[in-house]
Write a protein that binds this DNA or RNA. Structure first.
Length: 275
DNA sequence: AGTACCACCTGACGGC
DNA sequence: TGCCGTCAGGTGGTAC
């Protein structure tokens, strides 16, 4: 689940629940989710501190510690946050939890443990170190986007999903953005024209706005979104034709072959030149 | 600079 | 019922 819109919702959730409260205890139930920090260090560094503010870069969530440094959370494929008080509200795969002095807890649940919890200097330094591209939502202007994507030799889908190109787009939302832009996922990034980029950029912008407004819940998304119909049993929300599955760089993508043509009038352009 | 394949984990699902 | 292969929205490493 956790791509940019999901992580943005987690960030707002954390803001609305766990900010400005003293951390009394840190429980680590599974060391595997810790990256570059030991259980003891994490506990020592967080104890007595508060989470002051949050930040997000791509799929990474950061919470500033009142004293120094930031807590970094990455959610892998199955991670999420839950703020609760009573034990029976506790989700099933809590790997780490912060216990606050007010009796509430913030749990990091990650069933498959493909996510990461870490302590970092600050979000900017982390993004530099990890070679993350610009965040796909915040402060990504059109020229930066076009420069980052154009010239890449892979498919547009795998290029959008490359976190070094642009940070935050995963398998699901790359499908959605390409569906909205009516671009076939296998089109090569370096064959896109300026107007394709403008279209792609605007569609991405709309996908972020709508999906975040929907709380990243597929059920609450606009009727013309592909996201709730990612299955070959489903039909295209636009033309009602069959949805098709395709493997690209090892990932399963879904698209509408009628709305997203691979061959997009190259010949039309040529014939214009000739005539 | 790409892709293919494996690995890390758990769990759901379909076929037998 | 149980076993097995496959698949799942994350990333990282290696080989080509």
């Amino acid at each position: 689940m956790p791509e940019l819109p999901d992580v943005e919702i987690f960030r707002r959730y954390l803001n609305a629940t766990a900010l400005h409260q003293e951390i009394e205890t840190v429980r680590v139930h599974h060391d595997r989710v810790l990256k570059g920090v030991s259980k003891a260090t994490l506990q020592r560094r967080l104890k007595g501190q508060e989470l002051d503010q949050t930040s997000r870069h791509g799929k990474h969530l950061f919470a500033a510690l009142s004293k120094k440094g930031w807590l970094m959370l990455h959610f892998g494929m199955t991670g999420f946050l839950r703020y609760f008080q009573v034990e029976d509200k506790k989700p099933g795969h809590v790997r780490m939890e912060l216990l606050f002095t007010n009796g509430y807890r913030l749990a990091y649940d990650c069933q498959r443990m493909l996510g990461q919890v870490s302590l970092v200097k600050d979000p900017y330094t982390f993004a530099e170190k990890e070679k993350l591209g610009p965040d796909a939502l915040e402060g990504l202007d059109f020229d930066t986007f076009r420069t980052a994507v154009s010239g890449r030799r892979g498919s547009i889908k795998s290029t959008l999903m490359n976190q070094e190109v642009v940070a935050g787009i995963g398998n699901i939302y790359s499908d959605e953005i390409l569906f909205q832009a009516r671009l076939h996922p296998a089109i090569l990034a370096n064959t896109l024209k300026d107007k394709d980029f403008e279209n792609l950029y605007q569609c991405m912008d709309r996908v972020w706005k709508e999906s975040i407004d929907a709380g990243a819940d597929p059920e609450a998304m606009p009727d013309d979104f592909l996201l709730p119909h990612r299955s070959e049993e489903e039909s295209c929300p636009r033309c009602r034709g069959p949805v098709k599955k395709i493997k690209i760089s090892g990932r399963s993508g879904y698209y509408c072959p009628r709305c997203q043509k691979k061959d997009r009038g190259q010949r039309t352009d040529d014939s214009k030149k000739q005539s």
